[in-house]
């Protein structure tokens, strides 16, 4: 791990200001992703701003009947909250489908959103990666693409976003609250937080440098069934090969793109009276396999149809 200096933030706005003004600064909350990457020297911050003790640990009802979850709430606490369990079960299920219990106890909601890809080539400093070093090239293209994206990839990056939680938040049409370095509060739709890679895969979100996530806001729960399904190589404590969040008439896919993939085409097809299979096909019309990950297209169709039918799978 490279040397760095450390400060404990006194306020969210102060943290954002300090982050913008200090070259090489990063926010530290739970640390489960950042410290792992710092040990590998993939992340090399020269200053850490510890936001883990900021008073962002409340889960509170909003005036319109939704729920605001503070960014420093642990993944476990959010999944266990009675209101999340009963009103937003898709979110509770998605949270406990991720990582291990120890990691969920430490990892925060804000950190979960802003975590970095698990692309094997991103994690291998001996291989070129445009996320690590812009312009270096993408080793996953032409490499082992099994875990990589089928939607929204580019010739510069085919990585996926690893969050389970964010897939549920997409289907729930959540919003993300932030504070900017100037101290202004901002609200961003969840689907606008993460960016597809295009030619700049090292720019991963629409947040400006120093902008700090302060909360996730859920609108009132949608009518209808909520469900989270995750397909992976082992039953527990493994990243998804593909996941799906269903919340009423809304649906999102995980592990298929560099952001949670809201299935807007399938939703539109269903609203127009299409069958479940037709809706899945509509969504997958733009999917592109890279070779070893082509199975994800078939898998996505089956998981979407099974989820829409309500066929139990485990």
């Amino acid at each position: 791990m490279r040397p760095f200096t450390y400060e404990r933030a006194e306020s969210a706005a102060g943290a954002a200001k300090a982050a913008a003004e200090t070259p090489g600064a990063k926010f530290l909350a739970g640390g489960t992703n950042l410290l792992d990457l710092m040990k590998l020297e993939i992340e090399r911050p020269t200053h850490l701003i510890d936001v883990g003790r900021l008073p962002l640990t409340q889960i509170e009802a909003t005036a319109d009947g939704g729920l605001r979850i503070g960014a420093a709430v642990s993944n476990s606490a959010a999944a266990s909250d009675r209101r999340v369990r009963t009103l937003y079960p898709v979110l509770s299920h998605a949270l406990v489908a991720g990582a291990s219990a120890q990691l969920r106890n430490k990892a925060t909601i804000g950190g979960n959103l802003m975590q970095r890809t698990r692309c094997a080539y991103f994690y291998d400093p001996a291989k070129p990666c445009n996320k690590r070093e812009p312009g270096a090239g993408c080793s996953a293209l032409g490499g082992d693409s099994r875990a990589n994206a089928i939607f929204g990839a580019s010739e510069h990056c085919v990585a996926t976003h690893p969050s389970d939680m964010a897939v549920a938040l997409s289907a729930l049409e959540a919003e993300v609250e932030t504070v900017t370095p100037s101290g202004a509060a901002r609200t961003i739709a969840l689907d606008d937080v993460h960016r597809l890679p295009a030619a700049t895969p090292h720019i991963e979100s629409s947040l400006e440098p120093g902008e700090l996530v302060t909360a996730v806001v859920l609108p009132p729960p949608p009518a209808g069934r909520q469900e989270y399904r995750k397909v992976r190589d082992r039953a527990s404590y493994a990243g998804g090969l593909l996941s799906l969040a269903l919340a009423g008439e809304r649906m999102a896919l995980g592990a298929v793109a560099l952001k949670p993939w809201r299935a807007v085409r399938a939703e539109a097809a269903l609203a127009a009276g299409a069958s479940h299979a037709e809706a899945a096909q509509a969504e997958l019309a733009e999917a592109r396999g890279l070779g070893r990950n082509a199975f994800k297209i078939t898998l996505a169709r089956r998981v979407m149809v099974a989820a829409l039918e309500g066929t139990p799978v485990r």
Binding site: L28, G31, L35, D50, A101, N105, K106
Partner: peptide, 25 residues
């Protein structure tokens, strides 16, 4: 790296991986 759990300790009674946490935190 938080993958094996051998470093698990309790902080305030809650289990975490002590390898993925700075002591100063």
């Amino acid at each position: 790296h938080g993958q094996c759990g051998a470093c698990t300790v309790l902080v305030g009674g809650v289990r975490i991986n002590s390898c993925l946490s700075l002591a100063i935190m």
